[in-house]
């Protein structure tokens, strides 16, 4: 029985030092639960609050990206609307924390996100700050829930490039993986 082969799955998760792994619809309740979990788990392990806060804010931006933009939508029982589904994983190795998200995106968004990441990855700290300030002042597009600032903020908080990987799934959709690292005494 497949269910009983959990040991293999457990062993793999341990090997990869997975500290949080969620797959499914990211409702606001779910996001708050995971944010609280990160806060309580890492506040004990990390002495510097700044690192916990950076990890938390990267996590929230990436999880909200899934909730807002994933083309795989799911109905959540107690609320009368769809939320985005995907996967988000936090791993830790030698005090380096990696936050990785995966979700379905359509062609149009995929192109935008990849170009956005490539642009972000060429920028230094000061350029990212200017880019952020420029974007925050642009008036919001009507149907946009977020402010289009999330990934710039992720790059600024992490101090590392945003890595990405794309797997085409069907004619219109691809599975997009985004991954960033954050560590102690980055940006200092």
């Amino acid at each position: 029985m497949a269910e009983l082969e959990l040991f293999e799955y457990y062993r793999k998760m341990c090997e990869r030092n997975i500290v949080l792994d969620f797959q499914g619809a990211i409702s606001q309740d779910m996001l708050v639960g995971m944010a609280e979990l990160i806060k309580s788990k890492f506040s004990l392990e990390m002495h510097r609050t700044n690192l916990v806060k950076k990890l938390l804010s990267i996590f929230i931006e990436m999880a909200q990206n899934i909730a807002f933009y994933s083309t795989e939508r799911a109905r959540v029982d107690h609320i009368d609307k769809d939320v985005g589904a995907g996967i988000i994983v936090v791993t830790e190795k030698d005090k380096v924390y990696t936050i990785t998200s995966g979700n379905m995106v359509n062609k149009k968004n995929l192109l935008f996100i990849i170009e956005h990441c490539q642009k972000i990855n060429t920028m230094d700290k000061e350029e990212l700050k200017q880019f952020y300030k420029e974007k925050i002042k642009l008036s919001r597009k009507k149907d946009e829930k977020g402010a289009g600032l999330g990934l710039i903020d992720v790059a600024r908080k992490s101090g590392n490039p945003i890595q990405f990987n794309i797997t085409p799934v069907d004619e219109n959709n691809s599975f997009l993986v985004l991954s960033v690292k954050v560590q102690e005494d980055n940006n200092e």
Partner: peptide, 12 residues
């Protein structure tokens, strides 16, 4: 103590 980017935009 924490605000996400879309909240930051609203404060602006």
């Amino acid at each position: 103590n924490y605000l996400n980017t879309s909240s930051t935009k609203c404060i602006l």
